[in-house]
Computed example of a mutant assay.
Amino acid sequence: MSDGDHERTFVMIKPDAFGRGLVGEVISRLEERGLKLVAIKVENMPRERAEEHYSEHEDKPFYDDLVDFITSGPVVPMVWEGQDATRQVRQMIGETDPLEAQPGTIRGDFALDLGRNVVHAADHEDEGANEREIGIHFDDDELIDYDQHDAEWLYE
């Protein structure tokens, strides 16, 4: 964590967005908002990690489809930092169901189908979701700390 009420939040660009060439667009939107990128990688997620990531849905009928999809192509796991970062990101990506996502949100602009909704972000209402998801995808030494060059223009 950083100082004050800054927090780190987990975000992952899903295989559908990767395949459609939307990686740069998603990253740009988060950067332009003022969030600070502290970890990123490109990978084909191992099935075991996907099962751990979605373990809260293990008993639900859509669990196998979630795991199959997230392991179907490259993903871009990331950690972003900023004031109320989790809520900021959730607002920016829009509702889980793209039909309910507002235009101007990432899902509202780029997604049509619930099963292909471009990006995953930790839920701000799920206490501990960020720490759990960051820990699944990144080791502590992969999270970098640096001074954000425009911080004085972003925060009081």
Rank of each mutant, 00 (worst) to 15 (best):
D68A: 15
D65G: 12
E56C: 05
K41G: 07
I93Y: 00
A50K: 08
P74E: 10
H57R: 10
K60V: 05
H57S: 04
P74D: 09
E48Q: 11
E43V: 03
L66H: 04
E48T: 08
L114V: 12
E81Y: 02
V89T: 02
D109S: 03
G82Y: 02
D113P: 04
T86W: 05
R87T: 08
G82Q: 02
V42F: 15
D84V: 04
E43I: 08
M92T: 01
P74Y: 13
S72N: 10
E100D: 14
E58L: 13
M45Q: 09
P61N: 11
S72V: 09
E100H: 14
K41I: 09
I93P: 00
L112G: 15
Q88W: 07
Y63K: 04
P61Y: 15
E48C: 03
N44V: 11
A50H: 07
T105E: 07
D113S: 13
Y63N: 05
S55N: 11
S72D: 07
E81M: 06
V79H: 01
L114A: 09
G115D: 12
R116C: 06
M78V: 05
K41R: 12
H53S: 03
G108M: 04
E58R: 15
G115Q: 14
Y54W: 10
G104Y: 15
W80A: 00
V89F: 06
P46L: 09
E51W: 14
M78S: 05
G73N: 11
F62N: 11
G73P: 07
R107H: 10
A111C: 07
P74K: 15
G108I: 01
V42R: 13
V42W: 15
I70H: 07
V89P: 00
R116W: 12
D65K: 15
P103N: 12
Q88S: 09
P77Y: 09
E81A: 01
T86Q: 03
V75C: 07
F62M: 11
Q102I: 05
T71A: 07
P103F: 11
A85G: 05
H57I: 05
Q91L: 13
G104I: 10
E56Y: 12
R90S: 02
P46Y: 10
I106R: 00
D97V: 06
D97P: 06
A50Q: 09
N44L: 14
V75P: 00
Y63P: 01
V42E: 08
G108L: 03
R116Y: 14
W80E: 01
T96N: 04
K60P: 01
D65W: 15
P61Q: 09
F110G: 00
D68S: 15
F110Q: 00
G115I: 02
P74C: 04
L99V: 11
L114E: 01
G73A: 14
E51K: 14
R47F: 12
E48R: 11
A50D: 03
E95M: 09
T86M: 04
V76M: 03
Q83P: 04
D65C: 10
T105G: 06
H57T: 03
E100A: 11
L66N: 03
A101W: 01
